[in-house]
C-alpha cells in the first residue's frame, strides 16, 4: 500500500463527491469510540460537544473552494470511521485560520480537532510528500524555510543586516539539538523517506 497521499497538481477538486455506487447504510448502534478517545488525547478534547450545526463549514474559506468539509469530518470521527478520516486528502486543506473555532457555538474547537486528526493520520503513515520534505528541512537546517542559497544572504546584505542571522543558520549546535529532540520523539523516523513500494 502506498501510504502517501497525492494531490493532483492541476485540479484539486477532482475527488468525486457523489457516485452512482450504492452506499451502504452506516448501521452503528454503539460506535467504536477508540478513534474519538484518541482525538481527545491528541489535542481535540471537545470533539464530543459537536451537535452538527455546520457553522464551521459555513465559515470555512477552504470549504468554499475544495471538498474539505469540517462538519463531515467531525461527524465521521464521531461515528468511529477512522480510516475515512485519516486517509482523506482534503484533511490537508485547512489553513488553520481558526474562523470556525471562533464561531463554533459548542466550543468544539474544530481547528484543534482537525489538527489532532492530522496527527493520527501522520502517525499512521498518511503524509503528503511536500510536507515530509518541509519537516526534513527543519531537521537538516533548523528552519522550514532555510537560508539555503547565497542569493538569500546577498538579499540580507542589501537591506543592511548581517549575511547570516543569529538563528540556527549560524549555530550548528542548534540544529544538533533539534535532531536530538526528533530522535527522542521518534519524529525523525516519522518523516524520513520511506522505500517506494
Amino acid at each position: 500500500m502506498d501510504l502517501r497521499l497525492k494531490i493532483n497538481g492541476s485540479s484539486s477538486r477532482c475527488v468525486i463527491l457523489t457516485s452512482v455506487d450504492e452506499k451502504p447504510a452506516i448501521e452503528i448502534d454503539v460506535p467504536d469510540d477508540s478513534f474519538v478517545q484518541l482525538i481527545k488525547k491528541t489535542g481535540g478534547p471537545n470533539i464530543q460537544n459537536c451537535f452538527q450545526c455546520g457553522t464551521c463549514s459555513g465559515s470555512c474559506p477552504a470549504g468554499a473552494r475544495t471538498n474539505y468539509l469540517v462538519r463531515g469530518i467531525i461527524r465521521k470521527a464521531l461515528l468511529g470511521l477512522k480510516q475515512q478520516c485519516i486517509s482523506a486528502t482534503e484533511l490537508w486543506y485547512c489553513t488553520t485560520c481558526y474562523t470556525c473555532t471562533d464561531r463554533c457555538p459548542q466550543d468544539v474547537k474544530p481547528t484543534d480537532v482537525i489538527k489532532a486528526i492530522r496527527n493520527v493520520a501522520v502517525a499512521e503513515g498518511y503524509m503528503l510528500v511536500p510536507h515530509q520534505k518541509t519537516a526534513q528541512k527543519v531537521l537538516e537546517a533548523g528552519h522550514a524555510v532555510p537560508l539555503d542559497k547565497e542569493s538569500w544572504q546577498d538579499l540580507r546584505e542589501k537591506v543592511g543586516v548581517e549575511r547570516v542571522p543569529p538563528n540556527a543558520s549560524r549555530y550548528a549546535e542548534a540544529i544538533e539539538e533539534i535532531k536530538k529532540i526528533a530522535k527522542k520523539t521518534g519524529f525523525d523516523k516519522l518523516v524520513e523517506d520511506k522505500a517506494e513500494k
Binding site: W92, C94, T95, T96, K115, R118, N119, V122, A123, M127, H131, T134, A135, V138, G142, H143, A144, V145, N167, A168, A174, I175, E177, I178, T185, F187, L190, V191
Partner: peptide, 13 residues
Amino acid sequence: TCCPAPGVFGSFD
C-alpha cells in the same frame, strides 16, 4: 530555530 510552524508541525506531531 524554526518556531516550528504551527499549522505544519502542529499538524504532524
